[in-house]
Amino acid sequence: MDLVLSILLGVVVAATPLAFAAIGELVTERSGVLNLGVEGMMIIGAIAAFAATYGTGSYIIGSLAGALAGAAMGALFGVLTLSLMSNQVATGLALTLFGLGLSALIGQSYSGVSLPRFPQVHIPILTDIPFVGPLLFGQDGLVYLSIALVAGVSWFLASTRAGLILRAAGENHDAAHAIGYPVIGIRYLAVMFGGACAGLGGAYLSLVQTPLWVENMSAGRGWIALALVVFASWKPTRVLGGAYLFGGVAILQLHSQALGLRVDPQILSMLPYLATIVVLVVISRDRMTMTLNAPACLGRAFHASS
């Protein structure tokens, strides 16, 4: 029982940064923009959050700094792709290159320092319930924030007028523009929201998962977040499920080794990627469901002169 509990707690920690980054990218993509620079925004969020927390001693300010830095990276991407019409795929890759370099540069003065443990919620009685207590009521604040964000995005996209407009911009930007919606403005907000979420994901890495700064510490998680969005077929709630599934595979892989199962780590490490491909095929198999899910204008530049 203890082992199961601790495995589950480990899954939560592995899944949360993925959930943050993926829910942000989902909003970005639903507005019709494909930002492949998630990795770069995450790592900038990680160093900003670490530096701010180290400087102020406040995890709240640190997390905010991570979100703001990510949003700034998102805005940079927006200026390039939305205002200056550069190609989204190439710009996203350049954003990652830039982010990794800049974070390493800023981080030079923070190598070798570490932070105390991120505080966890403790609600008397509730948290003390065996098994369920620590799992549901004993996490850190960012975990709850990630779940709230997913729920919020889900509600926003499905039930609000603003959400409808955002989706319209992603489905048919010419029509949205003709009706009078500011397509570029909407996409700016979406890209910056995506950056802020990726920044929070990075903050989770440098504040909670391993409370220290090391170069390249995002180690490819931004790319997994990108896969997750497709894996979730652009549905917010499925992003959360997917993040926990990915996190689960990663953690179980490690546990199976510690239990002494003879499996090659390289083969095991391939599993999440292969699983994504399989899911992609399954959800895309039927042309109708795919068309219903994917934003029709995803990745297409929009320009209107009037």
């Binding site: 940079l76 200026v79 390039l80 200056l84 019409m85 550069s86 190609n87 190439a90 710009t91 350049a94 954003l95 290159l97 830039f98 982010g99 990794l100 370099g101 800049l102 974070s103 390493a104 540069l105 030079q108 170069e215 320009h303």
Partner: peptide, 26 residues
Amino acid sequence: LPSATTGVFQGMLLFFLLASDVLVNF
């Protein structure tokens, strides 16, 4: 010069190159 600086510099070059394309088509 630390290798991180090169990464930042390269990133800037790419941003400017990608952004300046706008002048070709607009």
